[in-house]
Nucleic acid binder design. Sequence first.
DNA 1: CGATGTCAAGGAATC
DNA 2: GATTCCTTGACATCG
Length: 319
Amino acid sequence: MRLGFAVKVLGKEGIKSSDARRWQNSPHLKFSIEYAHIVFDYLEATGITMYRLPSDFAPYLTHPDLPQFHNQLEEAHDELVELGKHAQKLNLRLSFHPSQYILLNSPNEKLTEGSIREFVAASTMLDIMGCGSEAVVVTHVGGVYGDRDGSIARFIKHYNERLPEVAKKRLVLENDDKSYGVADTLRIHKSTGVRLIFDHQHHSCINNGEMTHEEACCASLKTWGTNGRPKIHFSSPRIENRTIMRRDKETGKRKASECAPLMSQHADMVDSDVFVPFARSVRELCGIEFDVMCEAKSKDLAVLQLREDLQKAGDFVVE
DNA sequence: CGATGTCAAGGAATC
DNA sequence: GATTCCTTGACATCG
């Protein structure tokens, strides 16, 4: 089992994850790659073997109004190859997770077209780096647009008919916290063959009671077949009662009012008292090995903590 | 230097 | 139809 985290290193100061300068200052993938080498050095030092690259790794790569950024993959080709070699030397599993604005199922033609370019670009970077099929590009189903079935059908259609092969090989689908649960991603898998990421916390958010976490997880793991070791997302909810300032209709004044606790926010650390029994149940139920992307607020620090907890548990092999 | 505003983008809920 | 939240770090500007 590999443990990984997303984008930002917190365990050491001064490590950037991408060239985040404004377009006026000509940021470039080449600089992001330089930063990534430093991140990889940190991963080597801490023994962390899985890492999600930032969605803006190549800044403005597909921005419709900034064509001067569109050739970065070619311009940084050799540097990408070198970065890939560095990753392989560390036996590092890499991934991308494009931002919320990238949607495969949009009815807006321009948006879908742009998103496909983005998926192709992320996939191509992994290709150039020479990564195996375990290096994936993660996405969600997308918007509902007032018609769930139609929007699921549109995802399937766009995936099957429009997504180039290079991206089909990399794209994987994750259940989300609001609109599309594991029942939906499983349905889409049947029509597309897309591999599924099980997100444990998102499953808690939707919680329709039809599938336990273990059942939903195993069903998702099975969609990988022999195409690389599956991966799940795991995080613990930040449970916190919030008070918000709401404007009172009668008086027009703002006053504090209670609000339901938010279950969708991430806690600092992964709760191993939840993770360990869950992972054991999954092992018992289907016996499929998997990697774990920790989506905790404390990022790499949460990974190091979880790794320690797993070593104490004694019955997990952490790579 | 510290505080504050801003960043390319969509979707959904709210009013 | 317009506004705000979601969620996030860090760049960029201002005092």
